[in-house]
Simulated assay, not measured.
Amino acid sequence: MLSLRVLSVIGVLLLCGEMDAQITVTMRPPPRPITPMNAGGLGATRTGDANAQAIADKVKGQLQRVLGKTFTTYKVNSYRVQVVAGTNYYMKVYLEDTQNQKYVAHLRIFESLDGKVRLSGGMFPTNWNDPIDFSGYTSIQN
């Protein structure tokens, strides 16, 4: 931002005929504040939403094959996101099978940069109060 003194000097020079160029002053918005990122860290816990459910639905069949169960209820309760070379979704999912058995599972779902989604790990069963974090997942091979 030009100071008042610089503007005054330019004005005097223009009045004296010392400057014949036209001056344009452009005001720029202030820079956006930089928010710290924890690269590779887990984001805050979010309540399950339509986007998370859509991602989880893509691996429902894979989970059923791995566990040998068919789920009549499969609902994302909460989740956390980790940005890597793609995105890891750590999800707490409420499950009910065809025998009316109720479970809570933690799933690690990887979405690649090209949009492919796969179940990459999980904990089954877990307790409802278990926090969503990095540890304890069994890797699932495709």
Score class of each variant (00 low, 15 high):
1 M>F: 05
3 S>K: 08
3 S>D: 15
5 R>V: 14
5 R>F: 14
5 R>M: 13
11 G>L: 15
12 V>A: 13
12 V>F: 11
15 L>Q: 15
15 L>N: 14
16 C>M: 14
16 C>G: 13
21 A>S: 09
21 A>D: 07
23 I>P: 00
24 T>I: 10
24 T>A: 05
25 V>A: 07
25 V>Q: 04
30 P>G: 08
31 P>K: 09
32 R>L: 12
33 P>G: 07
34 I>N: 07
37 M>P: 05
38 N>M: 05
40 G>Y: 00
42 L>K: 02
46 R>Q: 08
47 T>K: 11
53 Q>Y: 06
53 Q>H: 04
55 I>E: 02
56 A>C: 14
56 A>M: 04
57 D>L: 06
58 K>T: 10
59 V>P: 08
59 V>C: 07
59 V>R: 04
59 V>L: 08
60 K>C: 01
61 G>W: 05
62 Q>Y: 07
63 L>R: 03
66 V>P: 00
68 G>Y: 14
69 K>T: 06
70 T>Y: 14
72 T>I: 13
76 V>G: 03
77 N>T: 09
79 Y>T: 04
82 Q>P: 11
84 V>S: 04
85 A>N: 12
85 A>V: 10
87 T>P: 01
88 N>I: 06
88 N>T: 06
89 Y>T: 03
92 K>H: 02
94 Y>W: 09
94 Y>T: 02
94 Y>S: 07
96 E>S: 12
98 T>M: 09
99 Q>W: 09
101 Q>G: 12
102 K>D: 04
103 Y>S: 04
104 V>N: 09
105 A>R: 01
105 A>C: 05
106 H>G: 01
107 L>K: 00
108 R>A: 05
111 E>C: 12
113 L>I: 12
113 L>P: 06
114 D>N: 14
115 G>W: 06
115 G>E: 12
117 V>T: 15
119 L>W: 02
120 S>N: 15
120 S>C: 15
121 G>W: 00
121 G>D: 05
124 F>W: 01
125 P>C: 05
126 T>Y: 04
127 N>R: 12
128 W>P: 01
129 N>R: 08
130 D>Y: 01
133 D>P: 04
133 D>V: 00
134 F>I: 09
136 G>I: 00
137 Y>P: 04
138 T>E: 08
138 T>C: 02
139 S>T: 10
140 I>M: 08
142 N>E: 12
